[in-house]
Design a protein around this nucleic acid. Structure first.
Lengths: 265, 265
DNA sequence: AGTCAAGAGATGTATGTACAAGTCACCCCC
DNA sequence: GGGGGTGACTTGTACATACATCTCTTGACT
């Protein structure tokens, strides 16, 4: 295998040497598709050729191809070689969850003004979503998020107390709460985003510099751990001119999601 | 093992004898998980037991398990049996695309008032999205969609002419345009939904019986064929009180999407 | 020249084997 | 009685093989 230039930066991920063969093959194949080495729309080398090139049996090669097929990077059929297909990649969990990572991924500079960070008793809706009794202590964080210095979103997060208390050792004006929680090994694993539209209230309007009643794109998010324990409930209100959400789906069931700057789409 | 009686256990999987073995196994396993025969959170039978039960080798069993693993219906790891996990299923393509199918899937009665169906020259935005020159003929369809008789959404669809002309033989007040197009073997394969919020204009307000400026949840949809040819561009405006969209994603990259009645979530 | 059939080559499916690596229960020993 | 090792069992990975099925080209026949 051609493991030249192994990812020296990836301490979180195992080095290529110790990964299973079919995963290394899959990564290599994906690199070739995305680099254009296997051009879009062109058939890729046959399984036998790949087996010969990497000196393996058909098993690992087929596992790798199946992985790419499931993500849509390969399409095609029986009897003829599969065809490379560059797809719009689904935004990874972190990018979709973290405003900071998202902003950077679209080449904008994220910013924030923290308006409030307080330990208080859970409000009715947040308590219900987090599965807490009303009045249990939680940590609330309210921030105005900026893109290139311009107000873009108003974020109201409610953390269960065990998670939220780490925020008191952290200045939410300096960076990404999401990354800080990851660093503390909080198991952010699953998120459910519910999207609708609301009219701006007085406070929304004042902070986002719009008129009361103007439409806002609201995303309510419940983040849970790997075992389904709620960790955070958030109510994010975007200026529609600054961000849109996209969902792409196909008859085969593949789904990719994204959040984009409005003008860019 | 092959010489054991022909099909002595094959009656257990009766789904269409001509499907490949691993697909039949996958369907059967999924049925057992969803029916509770393999209880949530409990380890499923080991691969050897499944091989014995269905009289196959490990290969098809493992392919079927891998399929369920990729959809999140099975979780678990090395050394210990995988654990059944009932997941909220992703809404299939048809349900997500068709208002009619969606309404029925949530137990509501869909309805529609067709306001316009006309062959005309493409408007600038629709033309750009459909990849047409401005002024090329298209078919526009404007319908007010109802849930249980109550206005829920205003739909403005623009079809490329080749697709849209079948609508003149079809009464859009009677049912689902989507199903009619499928029946005519139009290759609706891929859809990209862009979600944002807009203020209701005069016509929106009048038809949806709200005030001008009230927030609406807008979904712009570009539907394309399997080869990427644009077929339809739509601008759907939902009353936020009637529908929300949800996106669920995990660190492993699985994504499920849904559209729900607002109160039900 | 056009048409159709045969065949080569590709992928899809299925089996059998072997070993590596992880989990768990049990038992021995301290 | 508790701690730790051992071994059976399970899943993960890899290879070799065989055959089915589909695609596309080649070539003979009309």
């Amino acid at each position: 295998m051609r493991s030249s230039g192994p990812g020296c930066h990836s301490r979180l991920v195992k080095t290529s040497e110790e990964l299973p063969l079919h995963q290394r093959l899959g990564a290599e194949f994906l690199r070739r598709i995305e680099s254009g080495e296997w051009p879009e729309g062109e058939p890729v080398p046959s399984e036998s050729q790949l087996c010969a090139e990497f000196g393996t049996s058909r098993g690992p090669v087929r596992q790798a191809l199946a992985m790419l097929r499931s993500t849509g990077s390969l399409v095609g059929g029986r009897g003829k070689p599969p065809v490379a297909h560059r797809t719009t990649p689904s935004q990874p969990f972190g990018t979709f969850l973290s405003f900071t990572q998202w902003a950077r991924s679209i080449g904008r500079e994220p910013g924030q003004h923290t308006l409030e960070v307080a330990r208080r008793r859970a409000a009715p809706e947040a308590a219900a979503r987090l599965g807490l009794a009303e009045g249990e202590p939680v940590v609330e964080l309210v921030r105005l998020r900026l893109l290139d210095g311009v107000p873009a979103m108003l974020e109201r997060s409610t953390f269960v107390h065990e998670v939220g208390r780490v925020l008191f050792d952290f200045d939410p004006d300096t960076g990404s709460v999401y990354q800080e929680l990851l660093r503390r090994e909080v198991d952010l694993h699953h998120a459910r985003h519910t999207i609708d539209a609301v009219a701006a209230g007085p406070r929304d309007a004042e902070l986002l510099r719009i008129a009361i009643g103007d439409p806002l794109l609201r995303v309510r998010r419940l983040t849970t751990s790997g075992r389904g324990v709620p960790l955070e409930y958030a109510d994010d209100r975007y200026l529609p001119a600054m961000a849109t959400f996209t969902i792409e789906n196909t008859v085969e069931g593949r789904t990719v999601i994204g959040r984009y700057r409005t003008e860019e789409d």
